[in-house]
Amino acid sequence: MPEPVVRARDLGRRFGGRWALGRVDLDLLQGERLLLMGRNGGGKTTLLRLFSTLLAPSRGTVAIFGLDPAREAYRIRRRLALLAHLPFLYEDLSGPDNLRVVARLVGRADDPAPWLARVGLDPRPDPVRTWSAGMRKRLSFARLLLQEPELALIDEPYGQLDPDGHAWVDGLLKEMASAGTTVIVASHLVDRASALCQRALLLHDGLPRWSGPSDQAPRAWTCFQERAS
C-alpha cells in the first residue's frame, strides 16, 4: 500500500481552554480530493493549518508525505501550498510584483504574465490594496499555482468571487485533478465542491460527524442541517 500523502491519527488541537478540533483520523492518498464541510467555527481552518505545518497538534499525530511536521516542516513546506483566509500578499505591491517575489524565492522564472493569465487577471501596476476582494482571491490562486504543490490546501475557494468566478474555480480544481494533485478543499458550497471531490468529511464543533464518498456529501449536509436546526 502506498504511503498516504496525509495521515492523521486522533488529531486534535486546542487554543487555551477550548478544543477547536479533535478525534480526526484520516488517510488521504496521492491524487485524492477531499471536501471539508461544516459551519463556521467547525474546525475546518484549524485542520488545514495543522496539515500545512503552521500549527502544531495538541494531541494525536499527523504525517504529511510520511514526514513529521515537528521535525521536517521545511521539507514538507516545499511540496505543499495553502490558500488561506489571509491572501498572503504584500498590500503595497502590485499583483505582478507579488508574484515575482514568490517566483524568485521558489526559483521559478520571474515572468508573472502566464500565471496572471491563468487566473484571468491583467498585469495592473497598482498596489493590491486597491484591488477588489475577488481579484485578490484570484491573485492568491495564482500564488498557489506558482508553487506547483503536490498537496494543495484550499480554504473557501469560492469566497468573495462572483458566479463567473465560481465556474472558474471549478475549472481550476478540475485542472488540478487531472494533474494528479492531492487536494483538500474546505467549502460551504457543498453541492458545487462535492462534484469535484471524491471524499468528504463533515466537522461540527471540532469533531467529525460524517465521512464518506463525496456523492453522498450533499445529502449528509442536508441531514446535518435539519438535525441541527
Binding site: G22, R23, L207, W210, C223
Partner: peptide
C-alpha cells in the same frame, strides 16, 4: 488558563 475540559466524546455518526 489552559485548563481544558476533556475532549468531548465522538458523537454518533450521522444516519443518512
Amino acid at each position: 488558563e489552559e485548563d481544558a475540559p476533556d475532549l468531548p466524546p465522538a458523537p454518533p455518526p450521522l444516519d443518512l
